[in-house]
Amino acid sequence: MINIQEKLFQNRYRVDDGRPHIRIRNPEICTEDCQSQACTYACPAACYTLEGKAVTLTTDGCLECGTCRIICSEHQNVDWAYPRGGHGILFKFG
Protein backbone atom coordinates (compact mmCIF):
# COMPACT_ATOMS: atom_id res chain seq x y z
CA MET A 1 0.00 0.00 0.00
CA ILE A 2 1.38 3.39 -0.96
CA ASN A 3 0.88 6.05 1.63
CA ILE A 4 -0.31 8.99 -0.43
CA GLN A 5 -0.72 11.10 2.71
CA GLU A 6 3.03 10.90 3.26
CA LYS A 7 3.61 12.35 -0.20
CA LEU A 8 1.06 15.13 0.26
CA PHE A 9 2.57 15.92 3.65
CA GLN A 10 5.61 17.33 1.83
CA ASN A 11 3.43 19.89 0.04
CA ARG A 12 2.38 23.35 1.13
CA TYR A 13 -1.33 24.27 1.09
CA ARG A 14 -3.48 27.16 2.15
CA VAL A 15 -6.82 25.45 2.63
CA ASP A 16 -9.93 27.59 2.17
CA ASP A 17 -11.75 26.19 5.21
CA GLY A 18 -15.37 25.39 4.63
CA ARG A 19 -15.25 26.33 0.93
CA PRO A 20 -14.32 23.24 -1.08
CA HIS A 21 -13.70 24.17 -4.72
CA ILE A 22 -14.86 20.81 -6.12
CA ARG A 23 -18.19 19.16 -5.45
CA ILE A 24 -19.88 15.94 -6.48
CA ARG A 25 -23.12 17.14 -8.07
CA ASN A 26 -25.30 14.16 -7.22
CA PRO A 27 -23.83 11.49 -4.90
CA GLU A 28 -26.56 9.05 -5.94
CA ILE A 29 -25.17 8.92 -9.48
CA CYS A 30 -21.82 7.73 -8.04
CA THR A 31 -23.47 4.96 -6.03
CA GLU A 32 -26.19 3.90 -8.46
CA ASP A 33 -25.14 4.69 -12.03
CA CYS A 34 -21.37 5.00 -12.28
CA GLN A 35 -19.69 1.76 -13.34
CA SER A 36 -16.10 2.95 -13.43
CA GLN A 37 -15.93 5.19 -10.34
CA ALA A 38 -12.74 6.31 -12.05
CA CYS A 39 -12.22 9.31 -9.78
CA THR A 40 -11.45 6.93 -6.89
CA TYR A 41 -8.29 5.57 -8.51
CA ALA A 42 -7.29 8.25 -11.03
CA CYS A 43 -7.09 11.22 -8.66
CA PRO A 44 -3.36 11.70 -8.01
CA ALA A 45 -4.05 12.92 -4.48
CA ALA A 46 -6.60 10.22 -3.61
CA CYS A 47 -9.19 12.85 -2.74
CA TYR A 48 -12.04 10.51 -3.68
CA THR A 49 -12.48 7.53 -1.38
CA LEU A 50 -14.80 4.59 -1.67
CA GLU A 51 -16.81 3.32 1.30
CA GLY A 52 -18.87 0.42 0.10
CA LYS A 53 -20.33 1.91 -3.08
CA ALA A 54 -20.46 5.48 -1.81
CA VAL A 55 -17.87 8.02 -2.95
CA THR A 56 -16.61 10.70 -0.56
CA LEU A 57 -14.62 13.73 -1.71
CA THR A 58 -12.20 15.63 0.53
CA THR A 59 -10.43 18.40 -1.36
CA ASP A 60 -7.78 19.37 1.22
CA GLY A 61 -4.94 17.55 -0.58
CA CYS A 62 -6.12 18.50 -4.08
CA LEU A 63 -3.36 19.28 -6.60
CA GLU A 64 -5.82 21.17 -8.84
CA CYS A 65 -5.05 19.05 -11.88
CA GLY A 66 -8.55 18.63 -13.36
CA THR A 67 -8.43 14.85 -13.80
CA CYS A 68 -11.61 14.12 -11.85
CA ARG A 69 -13.66 16.53 -13.96
CA ILE A 70 -12.47 15.13 -17.28
CA ILE A 71 -12.50 11.45 -16.32
CA CYS A 72 -16.12 11.71 -15.15
CA SER A 73 -17.09 12.29 -18.77
CA GLU A 74 -20.09 9.93 -18.91
CA HIS A 75 -21.92 11.43 -15.97
CA GLN A 76 -20.39 14.91 -15.78
CA ASN A 77 -21.01 14.69 -12.08
CA VAL A 78 -18.07 16.77 -10.91
CA ASP A 79 -18.66 20.46 -10.33
CA TRP A 80 -15.13 21.78 -10.70
CA ALA A 81 -13.61 25.20 -10.11
CA TYR A 82 -10.27 26.59 -9.02
CA PRO A 83 -10.00 27.65 -5.37
CA ARG A 84 -10.35 31.30 -4.51
CA GLY A 85 -7.27 33.31 -5.46
CA GLY A 86 -4.28 32.57 -3.21
CA HIS A 87 -5.79 29.37 -1.76
CA GLY A 88 -5.13 25.69 -2.40
CA ILE A 89 -1.84 24.09 -3.38
CA LEU A 90 1.30 26.26 -3.20
CA PHE A 91 4.07 24.56 -5.12
CA LYS A 92 7.55 25.39 -3.80
CA PHE A 93 9.38 23.90 -6.79
CA GLY A 94 6.72 22.90 -9.36
Binding site: K7, P44, L63, C65
Partner: peptide
Protein backbone atom coordinates in the same frame (compact mmCIF):
# COMPACT_ATOMS: atom_id res chain seq x y z
CA UNK B 1 15.15 13.58 0.26
CA UNK B 2 11.69 13.91 -1.33
CA UNK B 3 10.41 17.46 -0.88
CA UNK B 4 7.39 17.81 -3.15
CA UNK B 5 4.80 15.71 -4.96
CA UNK B 6 2.96 17.34 -7.85
CA UNK B 7 0.46 16.49 -10.56
CA UNK B 8 -0.61 18.29 -13.73
CA UNK B 9 -2.39 17.62 -17.00
Amino acid sequence: EMKEYAAHL
